[in-house]
């Protein structure tokens, strides 16, 4: 369970989040919508612990642990995964080495032995097929020379490898065509367990057709100003945000 209380955060000295309250229970999918610059990406970056963002007030707990006291990798190993809006390229670090390091870091955090090479290769193959990602990409450097769709698919592949319990999909649909969107979304759905919860950040209903939210929030000017059911997303797509702004 993720619990965010009165969260204030700044980036580069500018306050972006101005008191966010949000609780996401196990198994729930929450959609987060909002205008550009409302603070959606800031919220997700703060949750995963990007050091560029500073929390000035409030708390975040995850399964009872104080997230703000943890480093980004500790949070990841606690089960938090973010599919980045723009995954970074890491020249020279091969996907295989990268995943091996990540998988073994998680096992170490759980007090397990590093995975045997043969077992690891088997796991890679299995997950690769699950998200329909080309093997060729695995021999390249992380995200280097990947197309936009390949990068997003690679994010879901990594999610498959790391089996998180809470996922943030930060505009995973941006820049994807319909087919790629379907593959990524169905990949995500296949990976979901009863316990998996998620926060889906998007501008469009399109993604939510595949990944059905239980609850939809609207973030405007650093605060959640409205919360509702799945139909809220459709209404926003049809009517925009102005009516919410006027209400608020």
């Amino acid at each position: 369970m993720l619990e965010i209380k009165n969260l204030h955060a700044t980036v580069g000295g500018k306050e972006i989040l101005k008191g966010v309250n949000l609780t996401i229970n196990d198994g729930e999918i929450h959609a987060l919508m909002g205008t550009n610059g409302a603070g959606k990406s800031t919220l997700s970056n703060v949750i995963v612990g990007n050091p560029a963002y500073e929390v000035t007030e409030g708390s975040i707990t995850f399964d009872g642990q104080d997230l703000l006291a943890m480093s980004a990798d500790e949070r990841a190993n606690a089960g938090i995964f973010m599919s980045f809006q723009m995954p970074v390229e890491i020249p020279g670090v091969s996907m295989t080495n990268f995943m091996k390091a990540a998988v073994n870091a998680r096992r170490k955090a759980r007090g397990e032995e590093p995975m045997k090479a043969a077992e690891f290769i088997k796991l890679m193959k299995e997950k690769r097929q699950l998200v329909e990602i080309d093997q060729k990409l695995m021999s390249r450097s992380v995200n280097e020379g990947f197309s936009g769709g390949e990068k997003k698919r690679n994010e879901i592949f990594q999610m498959a490898m790391l089996e998180p319990t809470f996922c943030i999909l930060d505009e995973t649909d941006s820049g994807l065509d319909v087919d790629a969107l379907r593959i990524v979304a169905t990949g995500f759905n296949k990976l979901r367990t009863e316990k998996t919860s998620a926060m889906v950040i998007t501008h469009y209903q399109r993604l939510l057709d595949y990944i059905k939210p239980d609850i939809v929030h609207v973030l405007i000017d650093g605060k959640i100003v409205m919360t509702g059911g799945p139909d809220l997303a459709q209404k926003i797509e049809d009517e925009g945000f102005d009516w919410i702004k006027n209400n608020a």
């Binding site: 995963v48 050091p51 560029a52 990798d73 990268f98 955090a109």
Partner: peptide, 13 residues
């Protein structure tokens, strides 16, 4: 820095 953070997000210290 972005690469370091990306790796940390994947759980790598």
């Amino acid at each position: 820095e972005a690469a370091l953070f990306y790796m940390q997000q994947r759980g790598i210290p």
